[in-house]
């Protein structure tokens, strides 16, 4: 059996990749995807912790998180579409009407 620590390390690496993506990618859709990677990294931790404790709580929590992530993606994409209609661009640096 794979020990808990391995799962946690993979999860931490995924989370770090997602965080880096949010800061370094210059495309709104990719930034949104990076946030989804962060949430899924957390899901992995939940499942691993749940398994280590021998309860199903961790896996059940994952379902809630997935639902929330889906809702978040829907709202996020809708906002991106309204933005795109104004500027015809997906580069976050193009949106400078407000002082960033």
């Amino acid at each position: 059996m794979i020990p808990l620590g391995h799962y946690l390390i993979v999860s931490a690496i995924l989370f770090a990749l997602g965080t880096a993506g949010v800061f370094m990618r210059r495309n709104l859709i990719t930034i949104l995807l990076s946030i989804e990677i962060m949430l899924n990294a957390v899901n992995l931790s939940f499942v691993a912790f749940g398994r280590a404790q021998g309860t199903v709580d961790g896996q059940i929590i994952t379902f809630f998180v997935m639902t929330v992530a889906a809702a978040e993606a829907a709202v996020g994409l809708a906002i991106i579409i309204t933005l795109y209609r104004h500027r015809e661009s997906l580069n976050p640096d193009a949106f400078t009407t407000l002082k960033w």
């Binding site: 996020g76 104004h86 949106f95």
Partner: peptide, 8 residues
Amino acid sequence: SEAAFKYF
């Protein structure tokens, strides 16, 4: 829209 995106 821009405010919404930054907040989101």
